[in-house]
Design a protein around this nucleic acid. Structure first.
Lengths: 150, 150
DNA sequence: ACAATTAGTTGTAATAATCAACTATTTGTA
DNA sequence: TACAAATAGTTGATTATTACAACTAATTGT
């Protein structure tokens, strides 16, 4: 009996999860954002310091032009604003607007609600182990990436 | 301190993992397949009975026309073949060719290798818990989906 | 002062996904 | 049996996402 590939096991879980999340958010919010757009918005708002597009490109593992267009889209929806960095005029600082913050809250509420349902019935020990493994895999995968690029 | 959304935690792990997987497969294989195409190929080969495009659409949570085009692509690369079902001529049965099987093996080898690296250092207990949680989440997410559609 | 680097922008092309409309076939039922 | 409904697959059109390359403007290093 051969073991199943990790990517497919976890991938299946993610598909099912994201599909349900997408269904709920499209039902219960007006602003139509993709999962990635919400992720970007959230990442901008959570960061300790003012972020640039380049920062976000590295964080989200995407090309800078992809991020640029995502931010175009978010700015059109008035969820973020760009402002030229005073100290380095090549850079744009990205700010989340009040409307953007409200939007994040709306999405987070839906996501936490779903999360509660999905995790219900699991022991605290299992959950701890789960997060440990997730972090371990992510760190290793990014480490492999780092080595490859350097 | 607010907890982080599950989708973003696991999503980050998946991005890092898939990015590294993509890098390795594009380096070490000639046939350029996406992760999803490999997943489809694998799903066809692993299924107990002969599968139809509709089956795969349900399994992969995609539109049937998406699957159709993925299979077009796989058939062009001579990795699968279609044949009309003798008992229900509306259906196509999808078969994996020998070349397709060799291709799956090639990808699986890369994936298992990466998997070993990523999971190295984790205890068996943590891994068991991890798989338990993954299955739990997937089952619940699909259940939510099922209820919503019925 | 000038080359190299960096951040952002734009154009373009490739890919992927979905929706709706359509054909062919099968199933259910009046 | 005949005909409506459902099913599987196909096609066309549209949309979104992504990446790559070429470009501008600003900054850094020598």
């Amino acid at each position: 009996m051969r073991r199943k590939p990790l990517g497919m096991i976890v991938g299946g879980m993610m598909s099912a999860m994201f599909r349900e999340l997408k269904r709920r958010t499209s039902e219960r919010t007006d602003s139509k954002l993709t999962i990635d757009q919400v992720g970007l918005l959230y990442a901008i708002s959570q960061n300790d310091r003012d972020v640039t597009q380049q920062d976000m490109a590295e964080l989200m593992l995407k090309d800078k032009s992809s991020i640029l267009r995502m931010i175009d889209s978010l700015e059109n929806k008035e969820l973020v604003r760009r402002a030229v960095d005073r100290e380095d005029r090549r850079k744009n600082q990205i700010f989340v607007t009040k409307k953007g913050e409200r939007t994040i809250e709306q999405y987070l509420q839906i996501e936490f609600e779903l999360m509660d349902e999905l995790l219900d019935g699991l022991s605290a020990d299992d959950l701890d182990a789960f997060y440990r493994v997730v972090n371990h895999i992510r760190t290793r995968a990014e480490g492999a990436l780092f080595c490859a690029n350097s």
